[in-house]
Structures are given as C-alpha cells and as structure tokens.
Nucleic acid binder design. Structure first.
Length: 575
RNA sequence: CGGGGUGUAGCGCAGUGGCUAGCGCGCAUGGUUUGGGACCAUGAGGUCGGAGGUUCGAAUCCUCUCACCCCGACCA
C-alpha cells in the first residue's frame, strides 16, 4: 500500500478525550475513530489488525475442534425471557420494537440463540460433543463505556459454546479451550494470566478470566507470588487467620457502655481489643429486601460473593433512611436479639469467640458474643474480600494485587440454560438429559487495545509481527533523487510480489515526518533507503523494537528481508 | 443514576458584554529544503454544541437542553 493514497492520517497532538495510552495511540495513528460513546469505527489500519487477530483466533478455534457459524444479531426478547436472563442483563440489553410491535434485542451474547439451534439439531448423545463458535458484533448498553476500546457498547467478539453429555466431558472441553486461549495469547505476543473468576450475569459455576496486567486495567487481580494462585478480586479467597482467643471458652454476654464509639476502629480502641475480636454488621438492600451481613471486624464484605450467596440481582448498601425504618441503631447494631431480618454471615465468625458486638442500644456494645450461641444466620459462607497482604489460601505466601484488563473469559455453564431452553438429548440408556454447556468469550477490540497497552513506547505502538497492520514500512528518503525513487519503487514491487505486506511511504516528506509516522503506527520492520545507503549498495533495516539498525546488501535484500521476517515470526511462536 | 469536567476551523487551544472571532498544527498553491515532526510567501476553512431569554449589542450574562470525557455505582 502506498501511503500517499492511504486513507487515514496520523495526528501530532493527543485528542483531549483520550486518557489511556491505547486510546491515544490508536486515535493518533489513525486506527480507529469514535462515533459515539463506546462506539468506534475501524479505519483501514485498525481493521487490518483486527482481522489478523480474528484469523489467529479462528485458526486456534478450528485447531481445537471448533466449527464456525454465524448467528443472528437480532434476537426475539422471548428467548431472553425463556432463559430468565433478561433480568440478569437488565439495562445492558439494547432492545427495539419492530413494526409489528414485537420486541427484539441486539444480541449481547448468544447462548439462547445457539441453544435453540442445538435443541433442534441434537437429539442423541451420538451428536455430542459439539464446539460451535461465531465471531460477531455484540451489543451491550454499558453504564459507562471507557478507555477507548477497553469497554465499548458495540464490539466484535468470539464466542464458542460447548455442548457435552456430562460434567466430565465438559471439563475436557473446558481444558481444550483453556489451552486454545493460551495459544492465542502466545501468538498475539500478549502475556495473559489465567485467574479464577466470578461468572456474573452470564451465570454458571466455574469460570476463569484471562488478564493482561497493566495500570489501565479496570479489574483487580489478587495473586500469590509464591504458589501462583490468582483470582479476580471479586472471587479471590484468603486464608482467614484465627482470631486471638479463638480457643477461648464462651463467656456470658456482658453489656458495656461505649459512648460515641460507632466504628469498628473506635470500638476496638475503646475496649482495647483487636478488630478481629469484634463483629461488623453491614446493612444491604437485596432486591428490595433488608439484609444484615455479619463479618469479623478485621475483614470487609465482598459484595459479589454476597450477591451470589443471596442469589439476588440488585444489591446495594441500605440507605440511612432504610436503616432507621428497620429500627436499627446504626453504629451499635448486631444480630443478637434481632428477629425478622434476614441475616447472612461470613464464615470468619467461626474463627473466634467472645466477640464484641453491638447491643442494639445507643452507646452500648456487648462483650462475649458467640456464634451460634447468641445469634443465627440464615446463610453462612465466605463473603469476605481478599486483600493484598492477606495470607494465601493455598500456601503460606502473602497475597498481592495488580490491575488487569480482562481479555478473555471462559465459563462452565452447566445445564441451567439448556434446561430452560429445552436443549435435551437421549443418552445411551435412552434417558433424556440436558446438554452440559460451556461458553468461551474473547473480545477482539479489547485484545487490540490490550496489545497496545503493554507494547508501546513514547513514540507509538509496537505491534508484534503476527498482528501488525503491515509487516514492513518502506521508507525512502530524498524521493526527488531518481536513484532512490526507482530503487524504492522496484523494492516495493518485488516485496509485494513476494507476498510481503508493505506500507510504502512514497510521500515527499522530510525524514523526521516519515520516521515519526513509522514509529507511531508501529510497523515492526522499517526499511530505509537513501542516497547514502545506495552509495554503499545497501538498505537499512531496523526493528521497531530495537535501537540499532542493520544494513542489508541491496543485491539480495528481498531474500534477507524474508529471512528476517520468518525468523521473527518463529521466535514469536508462530509458524 | 450520583459527583466532577469540557463543548469556539479537521486536531490542540486563546478569547469574561463592543465593531470584521484569533493562534499553533494540519490542509491548498508556488518556491527553497531533506537521516528524527524544515522554511518562506499566498490562501481556503467557523450557523462559537442546540433552543429560548436579557441587552442598542452575546462566544462572553441567564434559563433549559444535548453531546462527550473522568471518578463512583454497575458491568463481560
């Protein structure tokens, strides 16, 4: 491609609306253009990268046994009502009404549509397993799009759905997909960490996310540097230490005056006990129901875990007014002696005894509260937030945290969707059973942004060869020199004939402009030729990533270039 | 949805009641240049986000409204 005829222009200045590096560089290099909040067009450069990413994903899916298909984007809302996930997606669903007043959704994901399809085509266990995938635009009306391509409302996504006869077979499909994902990230030159994750609105039991660790990430990853345990903060566990007198004999309840001591810190200081010797109560509204969440004073509530435990869709802190209306004395509340309010507890209550808790009376707490002697909880589980510095749940290490971009998410869905969508099959004994599903998503645009986030310098993007918009930037200087012009032209023609992807800077610009554009766009290999290099019968070759150029003899430059490129691809793990 | 911010030329910005709205980059034409964003000359390009109001006079003051960005809530 000749730059003189190319659509799209580089920008010298950083557009004001772009804050994250990838957003700035993608706009400045002319890869994408914003249309609306969370809606982008891809210009030729960006589109080329996206298509290469797509092709790598397609190859790995095919290699793993996947079969590509295309599903509808318009989905009748009934499908979502049938699976019951219309509530889970809620406002994120883009909906519209057709001329017959029929309600439709723009697909945010395709489990419903594909289950329907599979239902009609799969009757026997002999038809399973199936790995079906699609690479299509999906729509989600995000509350807040952000960071350029990092979180958008219209996005290209690969989703693969697995259908198996039982859990064991699902485990196998899951592992096949996890490996395919590792291959994809390797080929994209993207270091991605597989972490345990919450399954959110998608539902299901087990799930993992693939994270690229970078400052602009919007997810917190909790990990153990010693044993490799890693999980999204929403999901992460920590080993909860025993409280100081965990082994103590339960003592009688005793009310003590604690004037003005409302927070855990104040109470603990006032009574000179560690915070792990206190109980904390947090008030929530869960789908409109008032809920007490009780946890040991040194820990915090993880709202994702709480939501999962309560199986509710809307969870928020109760307002002061709701607290007052429930007859709660804020700052001095506890579940002791309270009835008629749903109480859920963190299992840390069992890791201690003789706690300090609220007395449900202004200015008073009680000492020696013990579970379950003094109060009960309807639900008890781990609902604590794992924090950096906590003990690792798997080894004796200490947890750390980092921010990451979620570049892939795989789920073991189980049977809840297939049951609702009637996707049953007959097993070998003639019994009707729901297919066991898994789904495996990867966002292409976000992947593209993540690559830039972790592979750039102050000059611009640094694309790995496998996905670079072009492999080579052909950069002649002094184009008014006939010698240079004809040598460049000839080299361009030959390279193109050889199948090398060349961006030919045939503009009559100054060297600085050309070099800066080459760096900004981030083409892996730059070939410079000028009167100076021609005099030495050579052309200069420089990798975007490195500082030092090398000189190739003009005579067999094409051969040398091909060698350079194939060596580079091989070192990237791509063949 | 709550909080904060920004809308003036393609991009980045200046312009707090006054006459024809500026600057830099970019763009066009001509010329001189050419190894890290060159220089000179000439030129094109604006319903100042929109609507309403105040005023002799509004980019500027008031009201409403829309869009976009950031933080939070929420979310894959």
């Amino acid at each position: 491609m000749r730059l003189s005829k190319f659509f799209g222009k580089t920008l010298r200045e950083i557009p004001t609306e772009a804050e994250t590096i990838s957003h700035q560089l993608l706009i400045r290099s002319g890869m994408i253009a914003q249309v609306s909040a969370g809606v982008y067009s891809y210009l030729p450069l960006g589109w080329r990268v996206l298509r290469k990413i797509e092709q790598i994903i397609r190859e790995e899916m095919d290699k793993a046994g996947g079969q590509e298909l295309r599903l509808s984007t318009l989905q009748p809302l009934e499908l979502w009502q049938q699976s019951g996930r219309d509530a889970a997606f809620g406002q994120s669903l883009f909906t519209l009404v057709d001329r017959k007043e029929h309600r439709l959704a723009l697909g945010p994901t395709h489990e419903e549509v594909i289950s329907e399809l599979v239902r009609r085509h799969v009757q026997s266990y002999r038809d399973l397993p199936l790995l079906l995938y699609q690479i299509q635009t999906k729509f989600r009306d995000e509350p807040r799009p952000r960071g350029g391509l990092l979180r958008v409302r219209e996005f290209l996504m690969k989703d693969l759905y697995s259908f198996d006869v039982d859990e064991a077979a699902l485990d196998k499909s899951y592992e096949t997909m996890a490996q395919a994902y590792r291959n994809i990230y390797a080929r994209l030159g993207l270091p991605a960490l597989m972490v345990e994750a919450d399954s959110g609105a998608i539902g299901g039991k087990e799930s993992h996310e693939f994270m690229v660790i970078t400052e602009s990430g919007e997810d917190e990853v909790i990990y153990c540097p010693d044993c490799g345990y890693a999980a999204n903060a929403e999901k992460a566990r920590s080993a909860k230490a025993l409280a100081g007198n965990a082994a103590g004999q339960p003592l009688p309840l005793e009310e003590v005056a604690t004037p003005g001591a409302k927070t855990i810190e104040e109470v603990a200081t006032f009574l000179t006990v560690p915070t792990s010797q206190t109980l904390k109560v947090v008030f929530y509204s869960a789908d409109g129901e008032f809920v007490f969440a009780v946890i040991r004073g040194d820990l915090d509530i993880n709202e994702t875990k709480l939501r999962n435990l309560l199986k509710c869709s809307e969870l928020r802190l109760a307002t002061e007014r709701e607290v007052a209306e429930a007859g709660i004395v804020a700052g001095f509340a506890s579940p002791i002696g309270i009835s008629g309010i749903k109480t859920v507890a963190d299992d840390s209550l069992t890791l201690g005894s003789n706690f300090v808790a609220g007395a449900n009376r202004l200015g008073f707490h009680v000492k020696n509260a013990n579970y379950p002697r003094d109060f009960q909880a309807q639900l008890m589980s781990d609902i604590a937030l794992a924090r950096p510095g906590d003990d690792c749940p798997r080894c004796s290490g200490r947890l750390s945290s980092a921010l990451g971009i979620e570049v892939g998410h795989i789920f073991k869905l189980g049977t809840f969707i297939s049951e609702r969508m009637d996707a049953f099959f007959l097993d070998s004994s003639g019994m009707s059973r729901p297919t066991v599903m898994g789904c495996y998503g990867i966002g292409l645009g976000r992947l593209l942004a993540a690559i830039v986030e972790q592979s750039h310098d102050d000059k611009g993007a640094i694309w790995p060869l496998s996905v670079a918009p072009y492999q080579v930037y052909l950069c002649p200087l002094h184009l008014d020199s006939l010698e240079v012009a004809s040598a460049a032209e000839e080299l361009y023609q030959v390279l193109v004939e050889e199948g090398v992807e060349v961006l030919f800077d045939d503009r009559n610009e100054s060297p600085g402009v050309k070099f800066n554009d080459a760096d900004l766009i981030g083409i892996p290999l730059r070939l410079t030729l000028s009167p100076r290099t021609l005099q030495r019968q050579s052309i200069e070759a420089k990798w975007r990533r490195s500082r030092e150029p090398q000189f190739l003899p003009l005579g067999n430059a094409v051969e040398e270039i091909r060698t350079l490129l194939s060596e580079q691809l091989r070192s990237q793990g791509c063949t």
